[in-house]
Design a protein around this nucleic acid. Structure first.
Lengths: 120, 120
DNA sequence: AAGGTATTTAACCAATCGGTTGAATATGTG
DNA sequence: CACATATTCAACCGATTGGTTAAATACCTT
């Protein structure tokens, strides 16, 4: 249970049903029953899904009589975006540097390793 | 096995070890053995992790004698970023609209439902 | 208090996951 | 060919996951 937040968020969104719930909650807050309606599973299963989203910090809930409306928390998305963008940028930068290197190789073909160790 | 790409990518990145591998591959291509070195698991386990990343389209591999160097594919990240940003934006827009609504309510307090159905 | 609606908890089940060990495969070197 | 290195495949194991049904809880209505 002591898993880091990023793992929880990614795991939560790895399920298509949960991603669909997030998509719907992005448009409008909804109760458990409302969320469960379009899916072909029991409301208990949906309740579990919501718990996963809640534990990941993607969803918060209030109280309205018997109902427990779910609300999408947008802040957590930043955590993911930051992580993704960081490494995407690194990888793309490296790709760009490789491009330059390949252009340079048009003049002097190297006999050794083909692409590895190139940036050393 | 017929799961959609987005689910595969999110699931792949839900594991801290795999995220660390991606982070390292963002800086530099690496072989299975190189990747396995810092972790306290067998090389077979790491091989499995790489397969998950590969199936998700996050990693591609070439052949260099016995070695199978892993290379990070940055393109797949876009798929995630697009999905995340779309719903984050929706949720934030809704949040912003709610802010405006709350300001308006300073003048006319509504007796009915407190926050639900606000955007109708 | 009794009954209805909304939601959660508990116990269970099959499938998947992350790990292991042991054997197989692929490739370079003496 | 024999051997070493790098990687994968196969079988297994315990924990987690996504689902179920049945029972409990929370809150409103009469």
């Amino acid at each position: 249970m002591a898993d880091d937040r990023l793992s929880q968020v990614f795991a939560a969104l790895a399920d298509p049903t949960r991603r669909d719930m997030v998509a719907r909650l992005a448009a409008k807050d909804a109760t458990v029953n409302e969320l469960a309606e379009p899916y072909d599973v029991t409301v208990q299963a949906v309740s579990k899904h919501i718990k996963v989203l809640e534990d990941a910090g993607l969803v918060s809930r209030s109280r309205d009589a018997q109902r427990r409306p779910c609300h999408l928390e947008a802040e957590v998305f930043d955590l993911m975006t930051k992580w993704i963008e960081r490494y995407r940028r690194e990888a793309e930068d490296r790709f760009r540097r490789l491009d330059v290197l390949l252009e340079q190789m048009d003049e002097q073909p190297v006999p050794g390793t083909p692409t590895e160790e190139a940036a050393s």
